[in-house]
Simulated scan of single mutants.
Amino acid sequence: MSGGGTGIGLACAEALTRAGAEVTVLGRREAPLRAAVEAGAAAKLLVADATAPPELPGFAILVNAAGTAVSLPFLKTTDADFRAALDANLMTAVSLSRAVLPGMLAPGYGRIVNIASTAALKGYAYVAPYVAAKHALLGFTRALALEVASKGVTVNAICPGFTETPLLAESIQRIAAKTGRDEAAARAELAKHNPQGRLFQPREIAELALYLCSDAAAGIHGAALPVSGGEI
């Protein structure tokens, strides 16, 4: 479980743990990972850079929930912004999938769930690096799915709309600072993207991830499943 210390990743860890899985949360920051373990959301923690993980044998489930975003007009972005977005949102999933896939293929069973975004399905202004990286993550999901389709491993992407996470909280603060709006107004502006008029909760995405990791979802493969309230 990458990104398992906060937000959607933490909610996914909690859901899988409740379902009886022995969850390992992985990330570069030890404090939130340790807090997740101490709270009972996970059994183990692994402090590591997900783009260069250690050997990870024996995992039947991988949820790639790591990610980050910056908000800038395109002409103020740099190549480094795009590389950082690709590293955080794409290469973490690529590297971890490469690390765990042999251990799934050998017994002929595995589940890989990539937490993408509605930004993998459409464009948003002022977040070009993030949109590009999430589109790439969805392309990777579909390509890998075809490679392993007959081998007992499923690979899917969940594409949430704006969700109440620390990452979104940072975005709201930036919007408020740049526009002079208060945070409530900035939050309401983001909620307008959802036809239901609200922000999503991490547990909503986690419950879908849990289903995709179950035997009942064996026929769902190479899918991009929006949690968007009808936006997509």
Rank of each mutant, 00 (worst) to 15 (best):
G139S: 11
R174P: 01
Q201S: 12
E30P: 13
I158W: 07
A88C: 02
P102M: 14
K178F: 10
R98M: 09
G3N: 11
L144N: 09
T68S: 01
I61N: 01
L190H: 03
M91K: 09
P195G: 09
R28I: 10
A136K: 06
T17Y: 01
A11G: 13
P202R: 08
E14L: 15
E164F: 00
L190K: 08
G9V: 08
Y211M: 10
R187H: 04
V155D: 05
F162H: 12
A206W: 06
E55A: 14
F59W: 13
G3P: 06
S228R: 11
A52T: 14
L10S: 02
L75D: 07
T154R: 15
S117I: 01
F82G: 04
A43T: 09
E183M: 05
G197N: 07
V100H: 02
I175H: 11
A133Y: 10
K192R: 08
I205D: 03
G67W: 00
L46D: 13
E231N: 06
G5N: 11
D87K: 00
G7D: 09
A52H: 14
I158P: 08
L138N: 02
A119H: 09
L208H: 02
L90Y: 11
E189S: 15
L168E: 06
A209E: 12
A42V: 12
M1P: 05
R181K: 13
G229L: 01
P226M: 02
L90A: 05
I158H: 10
R181M: 15
S228M: 10
H135W: 15
H221K: 05
P102D: 02
A176K: 06
E170Y: 03
T163V: 01
A11R: 11
V148G: 07
L138C: 10
G219T: 14
Q196P: 11
A157M: 07
R181W: 15
A128I: 10
M104K: 10
T141A: 02
I172H: 05
L16C: 11
F162P: 02
G20E: 13
G27F: 14
F82A: 06
L46V: 15
L75S: 14
A66K: 02
V113M: 08
A218W: 13
P166A: 07
F200H: 06
V70E: 03
D49M: 08
K122Q: 15
P160I: 01
P226T: 10
L90E: 01
P54L: 14
I205P: 07
A120P: 06
P73H: 03
G229K: 11
G20M: 13
L137V: 07
M91L: 15
L26H: 12
R18P: 05
V70F: 01
T179L: 08
V25K: 13
S228H: 13
N114M: 05
T17M: 15
Q201E: 03
A143I: 05
Q201D: 02
P202F: 08
P226R: 04
P54R: 08
I172C: 06
A184M: 01
L137I: 09
Y109T: 04
L101Y: 04
A36H: 12
F82P: 10
S97A: 06
T163N: 06
A145S: 07
